[in-house]
Design a protein around this nucleic acid. Sequence first.
DNA 1: TTAACGTATGAACGGTTGTTCATACGTTCG
DNA 2: CGAACGTATGAACAACCGTTCATACGTTAA
Lengths: 125, 125
Amino acid sequence: MTPKAATATYDACEIEYVDERKVKRVEKAMKSPEAVGLLAETFKIMGDPTRVRIAFALSKEELCVCDLANLLNVSQSAVSHSLRSLRQMNLVKFRKDGKIAYYSLDDEHIAHLLEEGFRHVEDLL
Amino acid sequence: MTPKAATATYDACEIEYVDERKVKRVEKAMKSPEAVGLLAETFKIMGDPTRVRIAFALSKEELCVCDLANLLNVSQSAVSHSLRSLRQMNLVKFRKDGKIAYYSLDDEHIAHLLEEGFRHVEDLL
DNA sequence: TTAACGTATGAACGGTTGTTCATACGTTCG
DNA sequence: CGAACGTATGAACAACCGTTCATACGTTAA
């Protein structure tokens, strides 16, 4: 291998070939680690069928924990744990009316995310 | 507990309270288990900072494995494994030019998903 | 053909995650 | 008050996941 050019700042790969133009351009466009980390967390939380179903249901109606458990046919505990995860990522919010906790999506981005996601996977079915 | 009404088809929760109107309405709107499963899989794959960065980078430029490894400062092996996951969920596609594999996003839904996602998390920063 | 390179993949390990079970908390009603 | 109910949570276990290491494959150039 010939000596590296002075501009080479790469070390993950000892390969000479790199299209530096493209890499530098993309480098500048990259999002902050905080944003990337948060987005990955968000996707990870949504990476579960039950939570996808919860979020989708909540995109249609505000629902309480028990209604969700009945609708999705999962235990109240599982729903509650899932809702906690969703809450921690600000994907859902809730209001309390007496002993009933009514959940809904936290903002419209979540609904759009679901729509766009379903549009993608429905192309595959 | 009083005897259940004939309409009660729920057993995940032994609770009498259910807003049947809402539940039935949402029930009809629910997506198929296949679509839900695929979408959850998709989100799960995207639930990793490295893969989010890969996908975002590919939304800006078509890139080869080595460029990605250098850009993201991760090993070639890790990039390749991640790309495989993304490929399996039809999130990315690639073309081969000699020994170089050029990757790009499979369709525009993925870019939209990323945009919408970043819009959501950037509200939280 | 052989050497070098870009990429892909299998195995294995350590860390993470979802579910269940049991129980606790706060509210409502009698 | 006390009982019933809707919800929340902690612990624990099995299943899953991402990374690394080593190596293999296919292509190119000499």
